[in-house]
Design a protein around this nucleic acid. Structure first.
Lengths: 234, 234
DNA sequence: TAGTGGTCTAGACCACCCG
DNA sequence: GGGTGGTCTAGACCACTAT
């Protein structure tokens, strides 16, 4: 005997759909009833059902295609979301005091690895910065940044003595594309010294490249002090 | 002379809102006009404006509160999304051939560090597994996994000789909560051998803990072969 | 308590794309 | 060609919360 549901909210519908998937009433690779049918079953409207299914699709559980219908994905595409706060916020959020220090600043031609990575023209002028971010006087992050002059000419007027280029960039230069990588690397030489790490110690690093409408804006490599973890919860 | 917009789609409205923020027409910390006003301006309806603003809020640009209105955030909370595919999919997506190998399998009491981490009772039975994942015969990932027997009793009947516990778990055991960390660690001893890494070489690792309605299900630590990067684009 | 966003309804037109 | 999802409209009631 089929149980009848009389739900109202899109949240309830999401819940029922997920329950049916988990209990095996609906199985992976099969097609769900159409929105119209579900709306009838739930004594709801298509608009509400649509929102429920749309969100579940965004969350990676379903795949929707016109005419083909809504399919249950075999293995949900689990998406981990990391929020990328400003270093300052990340540090002060822990209760620690944030301190910034400019290590060096130099205008130069783009080194060839960078030109190749960002697809720059030969000899394009870039601003090269190295900065340290401290949490309660302990090294937290070493930032090695390159900013493309053609994309942001005003950057050459900034000293970045008292605050980091990231703060400045997010306020001034929007970006439309971002490539972000996480990796493990070895702390050596100066990097180890700045981070107060033993030579050869593994450190967590992030590499970040941003573009504004196809134009490369900046390349940043962030080396975190030993022991750093990037964590998220779902 | 104020320009009038006559947009229809929620996408257009999102675009206009973002443009106004980027060009400084609307500034951080200020409050946007109400949905009703915007609907009028855009010759649209509140429903459509609502969707536009709701999505921008989800994307981290706005903060919305009843009665208080919609505020522009100073520094948008940038969210990086990483999809967490099954290892198999990650490897085959590159065109390489995937191979799985069970290293060892043991039923035992939870070691104290694990019991503490997952908040298990003393002497709770867990299944301990170590597995290797290869891409074209090159080591790709070493998986060190613990599965809590009380949460998944059937797991003790599985041999996991020919396919990994992850495949099995995602099909059989839904989870409601997930903690995921990325970190850099040193390859030593057996880990280095399995990953074909030099002793002391930095490797990228992920730690993943899942719960089902508050009950801990599994703990996995994934060690990637040297050189691995986790990358995402926005 | 009044104003704002959160959500639902009922209906419509359309784009896409499978068969 | 026809069924499915994508989206918009016009209107309504409600929940929250700043004032």
């Amino acid at each position: 005997m089929a149980k009848t549901y009389e739900n109202k909210s899109y949240r309830d519908i999401k819940q029922v759909v997920m329950d049916r998937i988990h209990t095996g009433i609906w199985v992976p690779d099969s097609i769900l009833p159409s929105e119209v049918d579900l709306a009838t079953e739930f004594s709801s409207t298509r608009t509400t059902v649509n929102r429920a299914l749309r969100e579940l699709a965004e969350e990676g559980y379903l795949e929707r295609k016109r005419k083909a219908g809504t399919k249950i994905l075999k293995s949900p595409i689990r998406k981990a979301q990391f929020s990328i706060p400003l270093v300052r916020d990340e540090i002060t959020a822990t209760g620690a005091t944030y301190r910034y220090s400019l290590v060096d600043r130099k205008v130069q031609s783009a080194p060839s690895w960078l030109a190749s990575r960002l697809d720059l023209k030969k000899n394009q002028k870039v601003l090269h910065l190295r900065c340290m971010h401290y949490a309660d006087s302990a090294p937290f992050q070493l930032e090695v940044r390159w900013i493309v002059g053609d994309a942001v000419p005003e950057v050459f007027d900034e000293s970045f003595e008292h605050s980091g280029p990231n703060d400045w960039l997010v306020k001034r230069v929007p970006f439309t594309n971002l490539e972000l990588s996480f990796l493990a690397t070895k702390a050596e030489g100066e990097i180890a010294e700045f981070l107060d790490a033993s030579a050869g110690e593994p450190v967590f690093a992030a590499e970040r490249i941003t573009w504004l409408q196809g134009v490369p804006v900046t390349h940043a490599k962030l080396y975190f002090a030993p022991g750093y973890r990037m964590t998220t919860r779902l």
